[in-house]
């Protein structure tokens, strides 16, 4: 059984801000049914680019629901510029931490938020730079390099925990290992 914090459990059992949001003017979607988790984030943003309301719909495990709930609580009242600086660690910290294997749930929150902000600003999120390594979860080598550097990841399992990369068919595990090795080699 997962070692969830009381705060994760509480947000899972009593999630805040569930449902579609009437009058939402920004929506960010990430994940899919096939992946095993998905989040649809709705924002109502005022003329000063301040988030005055946020709701979510989530398909996923307890930590995915709790991360979504936490995300909406955190960003309410923030300006879009402030929200844009939010990281997955902020979501995880708000919940008192997530099990390592569940860190991708907080990454999902961050990703949906980015997409919602881009949606409000009418910005097309450009195709990701770099080469796709994990086809199942659409993760590039640059994203893996970034995650490895930022979080000091050491093994393919670490990368899977953070980015889900390698957690599907597993065919890219060798490639992920090469990427990790290349980061290590460069110091």
């Amino acid at each position: 059984m997962w070692d969830y914090t009381d705060k994760v459990k509480e947000h899972f059992l009593h999630p805040r801000n569930v449902g579609e949001l009437e009058g939402a003017n920004a929506v960010g979607e990430t994940g899919s049914l096939n992946c095993g988790d998905a989040l649809k984030l709705y924002l109502k943003v005022n003329e000063n680019e301040r988030i005055i309301d946020a709701t979510f719909m989530t398909f996923g495990c307890a930590s995915a629901v709790a991360s979504s709930s936490a995300l909406t609580e955190i960003i309410k009242g923030m300006t879009l510029n402030e929200a844009a600086k939010l990281t997955n660690d902020d979501i995880s910290d708000y919940l008192g931490g997530l099990p390592k294997a569940k860190m991708h749930c907080s990454v999902m929150g961050q990703s949906a938020l980015k997409k919602a902000i881009a949606d409000f600003r009418g910005v097309q999120i450009l195709e990701k730079p770099g080469q796709i390594v994990c086809e199942c979860f659409d993760v590039t080598d640059l994203e893996i390099i970034d995650a490895v550097k930022t979080n000091g990841l050491e093994t393919t399992e670490d990368v899977t925990d953070y980015l889900k990369a390698g957690g599907g068919c597993g065919q890219c595990l060798e490639r992920i290992e090469q990427v990790i090795e290349s980061v290590k080699a460069k110091g």
């Binding site: 997962w2 095993g36 307890a62």
Partner: peptide, 25 residues
């Protein structure tokens, strides 16, 4: 997993069909 945790609150023990571990969903 969500179903299992809610069942657990009712004292009901069952299993899920997915190994929702290490990011492998």
């Amino acid at each position: 997993e969500s179903i299992l945790l809610l069942l657990d609150r009712e004292g009901i023990c069952a299993s899920s069909g997915s190994a929702c571990t290490s990011g492998s969903l």
